[in-house]
Amino acid sequence: MQKIKTALLSYGMSGKVFHAPFLDFHPGFELVGSWERSKQLIQLDYPNVKSYATIEELLEDDIDLVVVNTPVGTHFEYAKQVLLARKNAVVEKAFTTTVAEAQELVNLAKEKGLKLSVFQNRRWDSDLKTVQKVVSDKVLGELVEAEFHFDRYNPFLSPKGHKETANSGAGILKDLGPHLIDQALYLFGFPQGVFADIRVTREHSLVDDWIDILLYYSDFRVRLKAGFFVREANPAYVIHGKKGSFLKPRGDVQEDELKQGKKPNLTTWGKEASGNEGLLHTEIDDKIIKEKIPTLQGNYYGFFEGVYQSIVNDFEEPVTAKEGLQVMQIIEAAIESNAQGKVVVL
């Protein structure tokens, strides 16, 4: 099996929790090391890998793939360096800070003949996979509206400075927003217009921490909401059609289990505990049904398998750079809509 030599650009929470365990587990990847600016931690977990002192040292090494998992404001600069060094790249969300930056990366990857993917791991959440099946099965009839939430209760500012200082990559719109937007575009396609309300709700916050985004499609609407003052969470996914409704609470276990140090596998990984099943209330074959729907298994391994196949067999990336660009188009439209107080036509 061909090995893809892979390096990370940081080994903080995202590198330790979301990337290294899957790169280590997938037989097609060889985790070579990580750029670590101060603390050298990756070798505590993976003794045989390297800790690079600079990005230049990393890019000069025999590396096939680089994961750009640094703060959002640095994504464009570092991803561009990676592509210019003729390495394939995976870039975390938000892909960039502007549409112009995203388009430049799309063009550069195409010019160099390299694979460029955006790490939208939430497509492989058990929640979203279940919602996708309900939508694709068309058991709700013609869709009227959908509402996706990423709710948290956390009134305190993050200790991570880059998340709370006023910079181009900070704020909930570019933190949780890309998850919600990508899922909406993944399920329903690109909308015709955007209306957004973006607020600051936490005391002393310098960045946006509450969003309400309405996506306009020709015959239905999709609302995306996220904030830090939701002690009692709403259903994460609410979809209403002309025949019925589907409500699904957020229940994916992968992030929590990864933070606990558990290692992924292909059999039991990503299975929700009972009690978080979605409720389907609809009409099928002239019969009204109201029942809990079993939750499908989630597994972020699917993203990494997609990256592997894209590089080794020239398949399309599991989340393309163009899809990352479209998310940035929605984000920029949301900022414009909030500033002008009107719908922005796409």
Rank of each mutant, 00 (worst) to 15 (best):
M1A: 14
I4G: 00
K5A: 09
Y11T: 04
Y11K: 06
S14Y: 10
F18V: 09
A20F: 02
L23K: 05
P27S: 12
F29Q: 00
L31D: 03
V32S: 01
E36Q: 12
R37A: 14
K39S: 15
L41Y: 05
Q43S: 14
Q43M: 14
Y46Q: 11
A53M: 10
I55R: 04
E60Q: 12
E60G: 15
L65W: 02
L65H: 07
P71K: 01
H75L: 02
F76C: 05
V82H: 07
V82I: 05
L83G: 03
A85P: 04
R86G: 04
R86C: 11
N88L: 07
V91H: 07
K93G: 01
K93L: 02
F95M: 08
T98A: 02
V99D: 02
A100P: 04
E101N: 13
Q103C: 05
L105I: 10
L105Y: 04
V106W: 02
N107E: 15
L108H: 13
K110A: 14
E111S: 15
L114R: 06
K115F: 14
K115S: 14
V118R: 08
R123P: 03
R123N: 11
W124S: 04
D125C: 11
T130N: 04
S136K: 10
K138H: 07
E147K: 13
D151G: 07
R152T: 10
N154S: 15
P155C: 13
G161T: 14
A170V: 10
K174Y: 01
F188P: 08
Q192C: 07
D197T: 06
S205D: 01
D212C: 02
S218I: 08
L224W: 01
K225A: 01
G227V: 02
E232I: 11
A233I: 06
H240L: 14
K243P: 01
L247I: 07
Q254W: 00
K262L: 15
K262R: 14
P264K: 01
P264I: 03
L266Q: 06
T267D: 13
T267L: 10
E272W: 01
N276A: 08
G278P: 00
L279Q: 09
L279F: 12
I289G: 09
E291R: 11
P294I: 03
Q297K: 03
E305G: 04
G306A: 10
V307R: 00
Y308D: 01
Q309R: 15
I311D: 05
P318R: 06
P318D: 08
I331K: 00
